[in-house]
Design a protein around this nucleic acid. Structure first.
Lengths: 351, 351
DNA sequence: AATATGAGGGAAAACGTTTACTTAAATTTA
DNA sequence: TAAATTTAAGTAAACGTTTTCCCTCATATT
């Protein structure tokens, strides 16, 4: 144990420098170094300066595992989404990362791959790793399950879903108002024969968005023609199928509201393939504002889904919740949309 | 300190169960529980069974911070990419996550946002967090810097870049062979007047891909017309600019090889806008196989970049490296491509 | 001048594991 | 049967922090 009294033990190979090394070199106790590092407790000015200098020189970085152990919490936020490679969830993760880093936290990623068990497994695994702040994008768990989970995991935040009983830990998006907004836009351009291509899975978002359409019609004093409602899978192929179905029905239409951008692209492809001119004959609106919107010809008018901002917010909320920071029980966290106007929507031609 | 000798202390509020609780209830020492949990060391069959039962009943999960502290390593892999919200990096992350979870690790995400300092800062921050396996997608650091870093961080793996001196920790992609493959395809369809829209930043990938084009021409016995080489930023706008420039030059061409899918989309948009028919008059090839390729009209023929598989591989490598698992110094990790043929490339019309 | 106050900083316990040592019992060997 | 070996399981130190006490001065108050 040959320490040079004022220096570091160099006899052994590379060793990471600890708080004790700093303390020894600075001639103080580890407690004091800790106080300097964390800015808590009283430390004399001279002493503080000296310790800080040594910390610099030695390049001391606190060991996070030790800190977590004694503090009984980590500085990680967990994110559970179906598949991070999808643009939407990529944006979500990006927002979360920014926000986490902002407060000195790191982002732990889990893919749930659209499976109920893996959503729960992911939560448990994150929790076992000492990660008590968790953002969950749940597609398969029931409200009841989520309510139970949120009793057990106090740092749990649900993103993109609204559950009244746990409103204060839901960060969600106003689908109804957003699609109503789309109807407004189309109506303002003279469209009345508006078709809707929705998702075949009529849960939450699709339902809400459909509701928004109906509300929009009502507000505009129009009536929605249910013959112009088609549904399929919420992807490119589904969009194509919807357009096919629409064409087959023979009911005239001058605009299509798609459930999301992918479906909008599918709709456009199929319409063009069948000789329709987009947007000259048919206007099309998407939802999400994904990169695709600008790749399509015409570029697609859509709703911006502020998922990145929502994720940033959700992270802060999750961290607060985990800390027991008092958050008002009766407050919820609702985000709203804005329209991005591009080429796929035009004034209806005067016929 | 009122313990019921065989049970758990229930006087205080919710307390997470520790190895000591298990030991106490099972009537063994913590060491034995540890041995059971980790499957190391000798434990009698009866004893093992009993301990396992108690672990089940109590729902004991080892505290990861404590483990990390004593084992001097975490079970996290760090991923540093410019921006996780970009599709390419999203795919990278998805692959990494799968692979990490597969071996019981978690994925820690850091965005470097295309800044040199933040790449280094990210490495340091990950390391400080006890994360010794790191996947780095570096855009701004020099080879020299990376070599130095890899001396300091033994679990560091460089993805998407090849540095001979540290070949064994580079997981990369054969850009040269890939673009040569594109030339082959086009040539097989009768194209000779082939234009290239490359990135204005002529570092690494763009250089390699250009080299591949030249090689491809050589192999086909063709000569590349340098008047058909245009460059701009590697995004949609850049693609448009390239097409504009190409049109302006007045040199005839029947095909365009774009640096990536985004540029391909831009090229197509601008060509169409100027009255060219794609693919009837001009074939266009992209690179990456991003989602956009299927959104564009026509759908885009491209090269599949196997980034997901590469990331999976990289994670395993990084973990091995961090463990000092002997990896052959003179082995490198090269991935190759495959063509995805869609609508944007057609046989040249017999004129 | 005697006492109270408060600031600065040290000692040591605690966080929950793992593991090198040790010991006791059981088994094998001579 | 005695000695040697193996097996099973316990003891306690260590990992690197934070934090609660505590003590010692210096200063302020009477």
């Amino acid at each position: 144990m040959a320490f040079t009294i004022a220096g570091l033990n160099e006899s052994e190979g590379f060793r990471v420098v600890t708080i004790n090394d700093v303390a020894r070199v600075a001639g103080v106790s580890p407690a004091t170094v800790s106080r300097v590092v964390n800015g808590k407790g009283k430390v004399g000015d001279a002493c503080r300066a000296r310790v800080q200098k040594i910390i610099q020189e030695l390049g001391y970085k606190p060991n996070v595992s030790a800190q977590s152990l004694v503090n009984r919490h980590t500085t990680n936020v967990g994110l559970i989404t179906p598949k991070i490679s999808m643009e939407f969830f990529g944006n979500l993760a990006a927002g979360a990362e920014v926000s986490a880093r902002d407060v000195g936290y790191s982002l732990l990623i889990c893919n749930s791959l659209y499976e109920e068990e893996s959503e729960i497994a992911a939560i448990e695994s994150l929790h076992a790793k000492g990660c008590e702040s968790i953002i969950l994008h749940s597609d398969y768990l029931t409200d009841k399950q989520l309510i139970e989970l949120s009793e057990r995991y106090k740092g749990l935040v649900i993103i993109n879903r609204y559950i009244p009983k746990i409103a204060s830990r839901c960060v969600w998006f106003d689908n109804v108002a957003s699609t109503a907004q789309i109807v407004d836009l189309l109506a303002s351009k003279g469209h009345e024969a508006i078709a809707v291509a929705t998702s075949i899975y009529q849960n939450r978002d699709p339902q809400q968005r459909l509701l928004g359409v109906r509300q929009g019609f009502m507000m505009q004093g129009l009536t929605f023609n249910d013959n112009l409602l088609v549904e399929s899978t919420a992807n490119l192929e589904g969009g194509k199928a919807c357009a096919q179905e629409l064409i087959q029905r023979g009911e005239p239409f001058t605009a299509v509201i798609a459930y999301n951008d992918l479906m909008a692209v599918g709709v456009i492809h199929e319409l063009v393939k069948n000789g329709y001119k987009v947007p000259e004959q048919v206007s099309v609106v998407g939802f999400d504002d994904s990169a695709m919107c600008r790749a399509c010809i015409p570029t697609i008018t859509t709703i911006k889904y502020p998922i990145e901002e929502m994720a940033e917010y959700a992270v802060k909320l999750a961290i607060d919740l985990a800390k027991d920071a008092a958050t008002p029980e009766n407050k919820t966290h609702l985000f709203t949309s804005s329209m991005i106007e591009r080429e796929s929507v035009v004034e209806i031609p005067h016929s």
